[in-house]
Structure formats: structure tokens, C-alpha cells
Nucleic acid binder design. Structure first.
Lengths: 130, 130
DNA sequence: CTTTCTGCAAATCTTTTGCAGCTCT
DNA sequence: AGAGCTGCAAAAGATTTGCAGAAAG
């Protein structure tokens, strides 16, 4: 990314406002409110640039394609997808751990995903295949 | 999955032999050596059944679509994709951690991915964009 | 002005589905 | 026979790319 455009700004705004990672279609939907007529290709091109520049992080979750979030090293809500007993997922930054690794392997970065149920979903569980 | 077929057997054999998660096309390539003429649709259908039955696990990694591995709770090599400085990825089973989680959130399962460089790749680094 | 974006449409690629025929029990 | 699978081809989704015109610096 070399230039700041209204499209790239709208994308960052959308993700920042959501306070959670968004899927590409969600980003388009939100950003298009700010920049009518915006296309999906622009979303993908900008996500790629912004990720390359360390401004966004791409998260891969089972059942979803790619979610994109602001790049931070603290707790980040990852998903609120309507899956039966897995309503929320969190990624947490931890210290490096070299146990169990093969000799000579050096850890450069890591990612931890915890699957579980939040308070609200415990009270209102979704039907098995909703 | 209700029946064991030569196709499903070939898929399990391929993954077991590889000793690492495989991408769908890799599974087809390997399984087709055992069952000539096998189709991609059969690979996907079997992966789905085997995952449902807890015999396989699907892993999501940046830059790749889905890799499938034997389901274990111990160390599993996840990827040897030719990325510049990230030659190996490992997933490790850990104990539950509830720190930093929102009140009321219960962890059900988790996944940890460590990115780094193995001994061999330190000695023979790949060019930046190979 | 010049270079870098954008939108649109077409192209790719991955995964799923419909169907008729085959297979295991 | 009968349920469950398979291969093939078409369909459905997601992401990328080519290109002419628009926009940022």
C-alpha cells in the first residue's frame, strides 16, 4: 500500500468499528456504507496490502474462510459465528515455549485459539444444527 | 461413514504415510496410486466423514486452504510449505488456561500453532519469494 | 502529470452437489 | 435386493487478475 484512499480508510474503519475480525463480505458490506459502489476486488486487494504492512491480521478458523482483524498483541475476539456450542473464540499472545520442539527448531511467532462458550450462549444454547 | 471402502482406506494410508497433514490435492495424488481413477469429490466426502468420526482433524493455516491430519493429542507436524523463513509449524496440546478470558467464558478446546525455522532450513534458507 | 487505485467482468481455484451406476452385505 | 459409495460433470463459493478509467500526491 502506497496511497491512502477512501476505500482503504473505509475498510479500516469498518474493522475498527466492529471490534472483532470480519469476513470479506462483512467488510464490503460495512465499507460500502461509507463508499457506495465499492467492489469485492478492492476489499481483497486492500486486505492484502494492509496485512503486508502489518496493519491487519488474517485469522483462519474452522468453518469460516478468512477473518481479518486489526493487528494487536493483546486479546482479540475472533468469532461469534452461530455454531452450536462454540460461540466465541479468543486469540491470546503468550511467551515463547520451546518444549517438545524438535532439536534446532526456533519459534518465531505463535497463535493460540481457545474454543468455548460464553455466558450468554450458556443460557441460550442454539439448536444442534441451526 | 458407515462402510469401509478401498478409497477411504487409501486416504487414511496416505495421511498416515505422510506423517504430516496433507492438502486435499495431495491426498488425492497419494491415494490415487492405491486406487487409480479416484476422484476429488470422493476425497472431500471421505475427509468429511472421517473428521465427523474423529479419525481425522482439519487444520487451517495461513496461505493454505485446509490440511487434514490423523487425529492425535500429541505433537503433529503441520506444514512444510515452502515459505521463506517459516519452514515448519507445530501444534501442541496444552492444559486449559482461563486467564484473560471474559467472565463466564468456558474453554472447551484449544489449538496452538508455533511458527519458526527448523535446523535444515536455517542452513539452507529459501530465496524471499520462491 | 504520473503512478497507483478502483470497479467491473472474466478467470481461477477450492469445495459441494446431482445423478446414474457400482459395491458391499 | 438395498443402502451406501463412487466417478463424472456441473454448480457454488471464494479469491485473483486484466484492463480502461478515476484518483491521490
Amino acid at each position: 500500500m502506497e496511497r491512502i484512499t477512501k476505500q482503504s480508510t473505509a475498510i479500516l474503519n469498518a474493522i475498527q468499528a466492529a471490534q472483532r475480525p470480519l469476513l470479506a463480505p462483512e467488510i464490503l458490506e460495512a465499507a460500502a456504507l461509507e463508499v457506495p459502489g465499492m467492489g469485492m476486488a478492492t476489499v481483497y486487494r486492500n486486505i492484502k496490502s494492509l496485512v503486508d504492512n502489518g496493519m491487519l491480521t488474517t485469522v483462519y478458523l474452522p468453518g469460516e474462510i478468512r477473518a481479518t482483524s486489526l493487528h494487536t498483541t493483546t486479546i482479540t475476539t475472533i468469532s461469534t459465528a452461530p455454531v452450536a456450542t462454540k460461540c466465541l473464540t479468543y486469540t491470546i499472545a503468550l511467551g515463547t515455549c520451546n518444549s517438545w520442539l524438535p532439536k534446532g527448531f526456533t519459534v518465531e511467532s505463535h497463535e493460540i485459539t481457545l474454543y468455548g462458550v460464553c455466558e450468554t450462549c450458556k443460557l441460550n444454547p442454539l439448536p444442534p444444527s441451526a
